[in-house]
Nucleic acid binder design. Structure first.
Lengths: 350, 350
DNA sequence: CTGAAAGCGCTAACAG
DNA sequence: CTGTTAGCGCTTTCAG
């Protein structure tokens, strides 16, 4: 396992190490002959540049760091609310990164740790990533962005809520998606459509609610106050909302919940109340979380394009990829979503 | 953003860089005074060693690579069968790694690419990880293990199927878990219990089936041939199995499916056939995938301790952590699982 | 117990 | 177009 170094390649090709370096980095001023010689030597030796040497010598570290929130992850488990969000995110970023030999490093941060800034600074100091991908809730963490800006490290924020002038913002149009889903229900013949919100503190909740209202207004449908019930993105809150709606607005024919967990709760409670879905009440969710496809009935929902968002982030953070984007590398990107139609909204209203 | 180097710390502490290095690496022969001085200087400067410099100078790279299969991930999405497996795995490894300032790198590999060996070798050459975590199906990829062995890079295999003498094997006792689940059904009063298998090619499938048979035998219950139906870990195969069982073995009172997706399919088909669960038929799954907690009824299942397995892997791969393990660092680890009792097996047989 | 010197593999600046 | 010379920040010799 003798390590193959640039010297070995240079020796084999009969040139200087600088020439090898030039070829490897696609620098100008290299004769085709030399290029060929070097490439052949490198290939035959199975040579690969050492990341650390490169990084130490001042070139790119070829590293993208993904900052994942520890608290949120733990909370998700405890509440039994896991998702493949992270897996999809990483995959999307990785598919881009691997093309140009970049690597992905996953780091845990506590978004409300008092040492956050010190820790983050230390992290940057120690691994020197070329770019950082911020996942919620760190996508909106001012302290994190400040440290990153101070370090001069570019960052992409997945699903940011505000301050859209900082970093690269990679989003989906949640308001629009909620509008489309509501419109979908209206097209199915529903007119009395209830909405279960998420926690008011979340911008996503507010945007989804706004989209619902947009669609209703657009169709000239009034929204009775009783139709909008507060939830908190959990299964339980969905069940409670269903119960409440059953009492205060029994004449509704469709319920649009702010996320899938909530919608699943609605579904379960409806069954308990003897209401069939979609027969008595159509139900729609948001996120396309795992499980949405396996409920009875399976859930009509909006698929968040997580992998695509991560890919867009990677394209903006990795210089060789950004160059390919040319002028399209806007700082704010809206990635298209999908409406996935399943059984929970299957038939039109009787 | 002037980078803080070991020289800055040495200057501030009034010692040589070698002394700083000694303190940082917990080397012997350091006077307490010196140690304190250095530690204070380092802390006040917010100093953090550069990973690349350390790695280049021949010390540990402080890197653990996680090899994730690209094909499998893509396939999971297409089939709508996402899970939080990867998220849990990374979290478990990260919680250990961060304690000793190790980092996690995620790499995609195609387990059946023809260039697998070349690519992997190049990867090792370029990032020089201290250890590698192999996730299925690469946990059993001989070619991968050969490359790793040749490079002298330690590796931990999550959920290996065979060749238990290679690398660190981190497993759960699937046979035992299946036995316990079956026993649980028997304790509930069931005697006619069906089993839906996974794909025969998977060792996990075979072990789960064996556990089922163990428990039945142990209770002196015979297994009618019609009770064991072949599935393939998908939702659809569960629905098909339920249909088949309804025709060929209508008198069964419980169904144990090899994984949650399959169990969810069973559940849905049962509902379609007018069978209530758990009233007419109790249903149990395996994996505790997201969604298992949100079905109607929610699913009794076995929780795979993925995070714990990853933690065990990290402990064995990261030298400073392994030292803490002392003699307990066996090459083969069985991590305890949990049986999660939910509504789908709620009441005992009528 | 402590320090000075050498060099890991690479790129950057400066020559030719 | 190509090569030489210094380092990057650290750990490892090897001397005190």
């Amino acid at each position: 396992m003798a390590t193959v170094t640039i010297y070995d390649v240079a020796a084999k090709a009969g040139v200087s190490i600088k020439s090898v370096s030039r070829v490897l980095n696609n620098e100008p001023n290299v004769s085709p002959t030399l290029r060929t010689k070097v490439e052949e030597a490198a290939a035959s030796l199975g040579y690969r540049r050492s990341l650390s040497a490169r990084s130490l010598a001042g070139a790119s570290s070829s590293l993208i760091a993904v900052l994942v929130d520890a608290d949120l992850t733990i909370e998700h488990w405890k509440s039994g609310r896991g998702s493949d969000y992270l897996g999809r995110l990483e995959f999307g970023a990785l598919m881009e990164a691997r093309q140009v030999d970049y690597h992905l490093m996953i780091e845990l941060v506590d978004h409300n740790s008092p040492d956050l800034e010190r820790d983050l600074m230390a992290l940057l100091n120690s691994i020197r990533p070329e770019g950082v991908i911020l996942t919620p809730p760190n996508s909106d963490n001012i302290a994190v962005m400040d440290v990153l800006d101070a370090a001069g490290t570019p960052y992409a924020r997945i699903g940011p809520e505000a301050a859209f002038d900082r970093g690269f913002c990679i989003e989906m149009d949640e308001r629009r998606a909620a509008l489309e889903m509501t419109r979908h229900l209206i097209d199915l013949g529903h007119t009395r459509i209830a909405f279960v919100t998420g926690p008011v503190a979340y911008g996503a909740s507010r945007r989804r609610l706004a989209g619902y209202r947009d669609a209703m207004a657009e169709a000239g449908l009034e929204v009775a106050p009783a139709w909008v019930v507060e939830g908190d993105f959990t299964f339980n809150s969905g069940a409670l909302a269903m119960e409440k709606l059953h009492q205060t607005a029994p004449d509704i024919t469709a319920i649009f919940a702010s996320n899938d967990d909530t919608a699943l709760g609605v579904l379960q409670c409806a069954a308990r109340l003897g209401l069939s879905a979609p027969g008595d009440v159509a139900v729609a969710g948001f996120d396309d979380s795992p499980g949405a496809g396996f409920s009875t009935p399976d859930l009509t929902t909006i698929r968040q394009p997580v992998a695509e968002m991560a890919a867009a982030a990677a394209q903006r953070l990795i210089p060789p990829l950004r160059r390919l984007l040319k002028g399209d590398a806007n700082a704010r990107v809206i990635v298209p979503h999908d409406l996935i139609e399943r059984q929970s909204t299957a038939q039109s209203v009787r």
